[in-house]
Design a protein around this nucleic acid. Structure first.
Length: 563
DNA sequence: CAGACTTAG
DNA sequence: TATTCTAAGTCTG
């Protein structure tokens, strides 16, 4: 058997805000707290509060079923994610303010991973073992008045297993470090509740995998610490195996429907329709090994090294790091779904609506307003690529049993830079973007004029290039990368070509674009462009003056962003 | 790189 | 089973 190496030196917290979308409405309108509340997107309940769950509602239920089961349910519309995104950001910033080194990773809108190893090792180190009951947790190394009192003779919240074995008094033991961490977790959850109004569920362990899974044990508004021992000895069984073994494999993070199906059919055979299979079933399967898993799960399209990775996960081993939050996203996308979308004109109308939202989001998420020298805001990054995705409605004929597929198709093209013009109104920018770029891409994706019917449209910007001078992360480290970044940004700024360098996707027979066939983008207004040194938006006529102001790049004549 | 696929909430 | 509205990451051609 391969050696089992578990890394127990890290302390990881997982936080999950309880029924997040519903809670956002409850915080906004506290009267909703005592009522059954469901959040609707299109024809389904995407989430509901616990009062609604008590009455039989659940996630991803049809609205008509929800109303039938619970006629007095309060239904609110949640298709616009803006307020969820804002609440998520506010919570993230609060939590990050507690964690040394800002080691906080977001997973979706409602989950966080915290690497609190340094805080815990420091605080376990200053414990007074003669008076553990009156301990003090230091939230600031340099200011001893910042922190909270706690009782270090007991865990805060619940544990798994529920009853502890013999307590160890050694401050460097894993048990003591986890105990201290459970009090930090409790403090953070209480701040989240009292300062912002959300309850959250917490998990405390030594990896993202175990912290997330163990948090599920007491939901909602609870927290659970996975107790040692994490490795089996002659006398004790490992609590990690104890905990993991009864989990359905599909519930393990990293095992999705695809992998679960493959494992299932290889372990219990093909004709197993609704059956469950647990971690123990897989782990104890005859001949189980990383290489057997590699044979079962490998093959074309699957990730390399998947056998070893799955073997580790099934043994509770996860060495993945808590990644620091990024200050710019890698993509921004807007989508909507439709019951029926089968004419060019309706598609064009919807694409304009989506593009408007997209440009609004690009402005709110990519514009840094905290720079006094740029009153309109300074671009933190420029996306360079535009992507249109659609989901054609499945042919209804023999459609009951079709293979698994994501069923989305997409086309990408360079993003025309005029959308960064802050003086232009968003409606006009959206109409132009659709006319000159998105709609031509649609024609490329669906060359036939009719005969299709779409259930989804998605417009996205990707391929972000960060603006020079935007510190990657507050720590300001990794100077080499910043210079490298600056170099790649500068490379994008070249002397303007006489010809428009990014043409419309070539559709000679497209009547929609023939009116402006040969003047490209730079027909009317001069674009404002962004200085690669300081990021400010410069009108065309002021570029030379701005370059002289910087001196750095005075050797470059007329700079314009190349697609 | 573009496009499909997988996983996640 | 996907259903909603996203976001990230990996693989193949």
């Amino acid at each position: 058997m391969a050696a089992l190496v578990r890394n127990d030196d890290r302390i990881i917290l997982h936080l999950d805000y309880d029924c997040f979308y519903a809670s956002v409405f409850e915080v906004e309108q506290p009267a909703l707290r005592s009522l059954p509340l469901a959040v609707q997107q299109k024809h389904i309940v995407v989430t509901c509060n616990y009062e609604a769950r008590r009455r039989g509602l659940h996630k991803l239920q049809l609205i008509k079923d929800a109303k039938r089961i619970c006629p007095d349910v309060v239904i609110v519309l949640g298709e616009d994610l803006t307020k969820f995104r804002n609440a998520s950001k506010e919570l993230y910033l609060l939590v990050r303010s507690f964690v040394w080194g800002g080691r906080v990773e977001k997973l979706g809108f409602d989950e966080l991973f915290l690497d609190v190893t340094e805080m815990i090792d420091y605080n376990a180190g200053v414990l007074n073992r003669n008076d553990l009951t009156n301990s003090y947790f230091h939230l600031d190394r340099n200011d001893p008045t910042v922190g909270f009192s706690y009782d270090a003779t007991r865990f805060q919240g619940s544990t798994f297993p529920a009853t502890e074995a013999a307590a160890q008094n050694d401050s460097s033991s894993l048990e003591m470090r986890l105990l201290v961490a459970s009090h930090l977790q409790g403090h953070i959850r209480s701040k989240i509740e009292h300062q912002i109004g959300f309850t959250a569920t917490g998990g405390i362990s030594t990896s993202k995998l175990l912290a997330k899974l163990v948090g599920n044990v007491h939901k909602p508004n609870g927290q659970t610490t996975l107790l040692p021992p994490y490795t089996a000895t002659e006398n004790n069984t490992s609590n990690v195996f104890q905990f993991l073994d009864d989990h359905e494999i599909r519930k393990i993070p990293g095992i999705g429907s695809r992998i679960a199906e493959k494992l299932k059919s290889h372990i219990i055979g093909k004709e197993s329709v609704g059956e469950k299979i647990t971690v123990k079933d897989v782990r104890q399967f005859s001949g189980m090994s990383p290489s057997l898993l590699e044979r079962i799960l490998g093959g074309p399209g699957s990730v390399k090294g998947i056998g070893m990775r799955m073997w580790n996960i099934l043994h509770g081993v996860d060495s993945s790091e808590v990644l620091e939050g990024r200050d710019v996203p890698t993509q921004i996308s807007i989508e909507d779904s439709y019951g029926r979308l089968d004419t060019l004109e309706s598609v064009r109308r919807e694409l304009v609506v989506l593009s408007r939202s997209l440009i609004r989001r690009v402005r709110t998420d990519l514009l840094d307003m905290s720079d006094d020298t740029a009153p309109q805001g300074r671009w933190r990054a420029h996306p360079r690529t535009l992507r249109l995705s659609t989901r054609p409605r499945l042919p209804a004929d023999l459609g009951t049993r079709r293979a698994y597929s994501s069923n989305r198709i997409s086309r990408s093209a360079p993003l025309p830079p005029f959308i960064f013009n802050l003086d232009e109104n968003i409606d006009a920018l959206a109409v132009r973007l659709v006319r000159e770029s998105v709609f031509p891409m649609f024609r490329k994706l669906h060359p036939e004029k009719a005969g299709w019917n779409l259930s989804l449209l998605n417009v996205a910007v990707t391929n972000m290039v960060e603006t020079a001078g935007d510190q990657k992360r507050s720590s300001g480290r990794d100077i080499g990368k910043m210079f490298q970044q600056q170099e790649t940004v500068l490379k994008d700024w070249t002397v303007q070509e006489p010809e428009p360098s990014f043409a419309n996707p070539q559709l000679p027979d497209s009547p929609e674009i023939e009116s402006q066939s040969d003047d490209g983008w730079d027909d009317d207004e001069p674009w404002s462009v962004d200085c690669p040194i300081c990021g400010v938006s410069i009108p065309h006529f002021a570029q030379l003056a701005h370059q002289i102001y910087h001196g750095d790049h005075e050797s470059q004549p007329s700079i314009i962003r190349q697609p």
